[in-house]
């Protein structure tokens, strides 16, 4: 690891001022230190955000949002009473994220900003396009963990479990910049390889993700996060699905379906959401939704199984939603 200057600013403004060429933000460090140890990140300056007051707070504000400071740790979020009350889906996602120890250090902001886990990207022997190199080694190589949606010259999958869950809850992110700060829907936060081959979100070198806001879910909403990984802990998703559904009587009035582990960004399947709204959640409809979800999948040589996984997971999630509504009725 190359040496660096290490700074702990006390305000966001100070932090923003310190940003620039060669500077990098350190949150929990569970991803960044790994990248630095492998020589993938070589910051000249590390800006540690932990000295900034209030940046780790989780609070509900009167306008109906839950606001999560970007520096809140994953375990802090998972243990928060408001989360248990309104967003059990988040807890499901967090419990399946990394390991208990990592969750005690890793932050919510860092989880959304973490770099890809593609083994070619992480490996020093493969100068891939995401490292300003030659191309995508997964194409024609060992591609079983790679994308079945949205790939284009690069087939990484977004590694976060939290991101699809937050997206299914219509989360927004607050981004601070020296000149202003803005709020962006999480759906617009991530960028795929068509837009950038070297970064996975819209943040510029001059910006900091300061908070995530989640609206209170609609009445009668049900949410769940299901994940398949080869190992039952400390393992990234082969595929995952975050579903949030609300009803009026038997009619679906609101639906969010977001897939994880299958695309370079958390993959929202709007076409499925649309077909679910306005109707009952019957077995037949669920089957059609599952087919629809993988309509535009373009699997690589060794990851066709992900198509089946997505269908299987979505089927499970929608049946669980359906059962929960029936239970609620009783």
């Amino acid at each position: 690891m190359k040496t660096f200057e290490y700074i702990t600013p006390e305000t966001i403004d100070e932090a923003l001022e310190l940003l620039g060429e060669g500077a990098q933000i350190l949150a929990g460090g569970t991803d960044l230190l790994g990248e630095m140890k492998r020589g993938l990140a070589t910051p000249k300056r590390l800006i540690n955000l932990k000295g900034i007051q209030g940046l780790a707070d989780i609070r509900s504000i009167p306008d109906g949002f839950l606001t999560i400071g970007s520096l809140a740790t994953l375990s802090h979020l998972a243990e928060h009473p408001l989360v248990a009350q309104h967003y059990p889906l988040l807890i499901e996602a967090l419990q399946r994220t990394a390991s208990p120890q990592i969750r005690n250090i890793a932050t919510v902001g860092g989880n959304l900003c973490q770099r890809p886990r593609c083994w070619y990207y992480r490996h020093s022997a493969f100068p891939c396009i995401r490292k300003h190199g030659e191309g995508c080694f997964a194409m024609g190589g060992q591609d079983r963990y790679h994308a079945i949606f949205g790939g284009h010259r690069c087939f990484i999958v977004h590694p976060s479990d939290l991101a699809p869950a937050l997206m299914a809850l219509d989360a927004e992110v607050r981004i601070a910049h020296a000149d202003d700060s803005r709020i962006v829907p999480l759906t617009d936060f991530f960028v795929g390889p068509r837009d950038s081959l070297t970064q996975e979100n819209i943040l510029t070198r001059q910006e900091i993700l300061t908070a995530i806001r989640i609206p209170v879910p609609p009445d009668n909403a049900y949410g769940t996060y299901l994940k398949v990984s080869e190992r039952k802990a400390t393992d990234f998703a082969l595929a995952s699905v975050a579903v949030s559904i609300a009803w009026l009587d038997t009619q679906v009035t609101h639906a969010r379906v977001v897939l994880g582990g299958v695309a370079p960004v958390p993959w929202r399947v709007k076409q499925v959401e649309e077909m679910l709204i306005g109707d009952e959640l019957s077995g037949k409809r669920i089957e059609r939704a599952c087919e629809r979800a993988v309509d535009d999948a373009t699997p690589l040589r060794h990851n066709r199984y992900k198509v089946a996984l997505v269908k299987g997971l979505l089927r499970k999630a929608l049946h669980a939603a359906h059962r929960s509504r029936e239970k609620g009725e009783k």
Binding site: Y6, L33, N48, Q101, I105
Partner: peptide
């Protein structure tokens, strides 16, 4: 492992288990 993967380096920080290999000493 030195990469946050095995837990052998676990210590408690303010009572919570963490991977001491994934935190800078200055932090």
């Amino acid at each position: 492992c030195d990469m946050g993967e095995c837990g052998a380096c676990t210590v408690l920080m303010d009572g919570k288990p963490i991977n001491s290999c994934m935190l800078l000493a200055v932090d």
